[in-house]
Design a protein around this nucleic acid. Structure first.
Lengths: 208, 208
DNA sequence: AGAATCGCTTGACACGGCGTCAATCTATCA
DNA sequence: TGATAGATTGACGCCGTGTCAAGCGATTCT
């Protein structure tokens, strides 16, 4: 409970920098420069360093900033508030597809730089670990409802769902193969449902 | 059929550079430097530029180099030589899991730098397009054998298989979640089979 | 009012790695 | 003898990151 949460300087300045950094990242991608961020925010280049330490620090801070901006907490509540585990997973896939689209540019940069930047890697891992934990919880719930297909352990199923729904495949399908986010969501859901779940009472019959 | 395939200089030197570059990439990852490559190959830094133009050129050349080294052509022949489309896909998943492990470091670098390097992006796209084409062909064959589950178009199924089997998820499962390559292969296959394919005559029954 | 502190600016600098250039060397082949 | 190809040498410019020291205008403390 120490005060390491008081970052530095004027919070409004901090917000301005983050907002402009976000905009620049959206349009310039991973090649956005700190000097541009500073200029856009109407602040000196050093101010950025004072607030965030370095480039990686800015990126990491950006993650929380956009999560807050997009109401990630509420989205999570909606997902977990589903009446059943299966429905929860369905909502998750849907929400994730939408959300991934919103922050894909940032995700790209994080992924691309996680290998030569320690701090960035940690930030990315942290995010992904939380996602894993969420999916494990959902999968446990699904298993508890007796809807996990025979032959799958909860852990294995959760890991596989996690891996298959990473940003990479999403990006490939929507950005390069021109699927809509909804198509992605539907197809992935169908795949997971048919591959990992059991029908509630009726079989897997579907309209032909 | 023009002679743009005669690259530059002594082919043996070229090979030495590529081999050493590969080694360095394996251990240093994306932060490997051209100067180190040159030193390791016992050649001047400029020689690298003469042979490959720039960093991206080296990386792209490296792709073909390792494909050749690992006998990618033979592997492909094995995959396509399967008696049925379904078996072909099964072989592909298995082979791909193994092969992805062999070249994962290189893949990482390619993925990571595709966004700020034009030539690298093209090289990566090229590779992935060929994979897509392969999977489309396999999926068509599967559909032709009447083993594609109802409700999936050939194109959609192929795209989805392609996306789900990208290096990203593979890396996540094997490197971070400690799955073996075989476990990955088995799990992904099970998922695809149950999700997209139809049993030949007997149902989907499996030993409990 | 005087002093200290905070938030930020200014300008300069070093570092690293990439890419480039011109000059030079050394075999080989004609 | 003299081109030509393959490679070396050493220097240079560029660019973005990160660092440093000094200073400046407000606000707060007393």
């Amino acid at each position: 409970m120490s005060s390491d949460s008081s970052p530095y300087g004027n919070p409004e300045t901090r917000q301005r920098i983050l907002s402009k950094a976000w905009e620049l990242l959206e349009e310039r991608g991973s090649s956005f420069r700190l000097v541009d961020v500073a200029d856009a925010a109407g602040v000196s280049r050093q101010a950025v360093y004072l607030h965030f330490g370095d480039r990686a620090g800015l990126l990491v801070a950006l993650v929380d900033h956009v999560d807050e901006g997009f109401g990630a907490a509420k989205l999570r509540a909606h997902v977990f508030g589903a009446p059943t585990g299966v429905e929860s997973l369905r909502r998750w896939v849907d929400t994730m597809s939408w959300y991934t689209g919103k922050i894909d540019r940032l995700t790209q940069v994080l992924e691309a730089n996680q290998y030569d930047d320690e701090a960035l890697a940690a930030g990315w891992r942290n995010r992904m670990n939380r996602r894993q934990a969420m999916l494990l919880a959902m999968t446990e719930r699904i298993a508890g409802e007796g809807r996990l297909r025979a032959g799958w352990s909860v852990a294995a199923a959760a890991d596989l769902i996690y891996a298959v729904t990473m940003p990479g495949p999403w990006r490939e399908l929507t950005r390069h193969l021109r699927w809509s986010e909804q198509q992605y969501s539907d197809a992935v859901w169908r795949l997971l449902e048919a591959g990992l779940l059991l029908g509630s009472e009726a079989g897997d019959a579907e309209a032909g």
